[in-house]
């Protein structure tokens, strides 16, 4: 679809999850660095979503119809939305639980992008 970008997005989500777990272990709160990396991951996911939507709108992938389109785009849209929502939720309280929640959200983000690519038939 757009070369290696989905792979980079998945790796970014996994790296974010690991960093969030480290923050949880150290009892650290989200900082500008984590916000910046999260922003990059979200921006890259938006690019994948826009590219996928473009494919659908222009009919470049005629095999993909109905339920598959809704599922793949739904996965990508959710992946875009959950990271900022999770970050805001983690900011609400300085605790290990907050960062564990964000780590969980980042893992889910990576999983959603993988599932979207699978539904799209790009990844086995």
């Amino acid at each position: 679809m757009i070369g290696p970008l989905p792979t980079a997005v998945v790796i970014g989500g996994l790296v974010l999850a690991v960093v969030a777990l480290v923050y949880a272990a150290l009892n650290r709160i989200p900082d500008w660095g984590l916000l910046g990396v999260s922003g990059l991951v979200v921006a890259a996911t938006v690019v994948v979503l826009v590219a996928a939507t473009f494919q659908v709108v222009t009919g470049r992938d005629p095999d993909l119809v109905g339920e598959e389109v809704a599922t793949a785009l739904g996965y990508l849209l959710t992946a875009v939305l959950i990271v900022p929502i999770g970050f805001a939720w983690a900011l609400g309280e300085r605790s290990r639980g907050s960062m564990a929640a964000f780590a969980l959200v980042c893992l889910t983000h990576a999983f959603l992008v993988v599932r979207a690519m699978q539904v799209w038939g790009l990844w086995g």
């Binding site: 309280e93 605790s95 639980g97 907050s98 564990a100 969980l104 889910t108």
Partner: peptide
């Protein structure tokens, strides 16, 4: 219920809410 471990638990429930609702809608 939303403090400490509750932050993570709410996140898990929210993710399940999105997953189950979206799946059923599709």
């Amino acid at each position: 219920t939303k403090s400490g471990f509750g932050r993570a638990l709410v996140a898990v429930y929210a993710l399940f809410a999105v997953a189950a609702t979206a799946r059923s809608l599709v």
